[in-house]
Design a protein around this nucleic acid. Structure first.
Length: 198
DNA sequence: AGAGAGATGATCT
DNA sequence: GATCATCTCTCTA
């Protein structure tokens, strides 16, 4: 028997103007949105905000070849290599030059589950996209996607259709400015990279 | 459940 | 030469 087909992703596509706002507004607004690359992906359940005025941001020290996309206009993807092994994906926010971005940290897998399981070498759906490096592997995101527009193929980004319950906490996995409460998550989600502490 | 270590490479000092 | 917005494995409990 054939595996069940995924239902089509629904929702209004987010335009670039969605991202042309404060990173602290965009970050929580992304919780519940659907993020797909070549039709594979799911619902964003965890993000973190980064801004160049704060030392954990890659843009903190000014523009370099690596972070150049962060200094461009909002609505584009910034991809970087993490620990020499993983890729991590960000959405650039605010006006060009503000060098702020939202790190996508976890997704609830919904579309293209077979592809994600194959790429991750895993059967447990709960661990497919529960971390920034994991979700890039599951969605096949590499530096080839660096600078890609969020409103064009192969990316699809669909607005949430219901207002989610959002939790907030300190950012994790960083050593600088680790006390800033700029991590946002979908309350009660099983697909987070780590639970939120209250 | 939590701690520790190794993998692995671009970027920065 | 050290750092790093990570992941997976192994060890101890």
């Amino acid at each position: 028997m054939a595996p069940p087909k995924n239902p089509p992703a629904r929702g209004r596509a987010l335009t670039r103007s969605f991202f042309d706002r404060s990173v602290h507004t965009v970050a929580p607004d992304l919780i519940g949105a659907t993020f797909l690359v070549d039709g594979v992906g799911g619902v964003i359940v965890e993000v973190e905000a980064y801004h160049h005025t704060e030392p954990a941001a890659h843009s903190y020290g000014g523009r370099t070849p690596r972070n150049a996309v962060m200094f461009g206009p909002a609505g584009y993807v910034y991809v970087y290599r993490s620990y020499g092994i993983h890729w991590c994906v960000n959405f650039v926010c605010e006006q060009a030059g503000s060098a702020s971005a939202v790190l996508i940290r976890a997704i609830e897998p919904r579309y293209g589950l077979a592809a994600m399981r194959r790429r991750r070498g895993l059967a447990a759906d709960v661990a497919l996209c529960s971390g920034p490096g994991k979700l890039c592997e599951a969605l096949a995101i590499t530096d080839k996607l660096n600078g890609a527009a969020l409103d064009r193929a192969p990316i699809r980004l669909l607005a949430r259709e219901q207002e989610p319950d959002i939790v907030c906490g300190v950012r994790i996995g960083i050593t600088k400015a680790a006390e800033l409460p700029w991590r946002y998550g979908l309350k009660g989600s099983r697909f987070l990279s780590k639970p939120f502490r209250d």
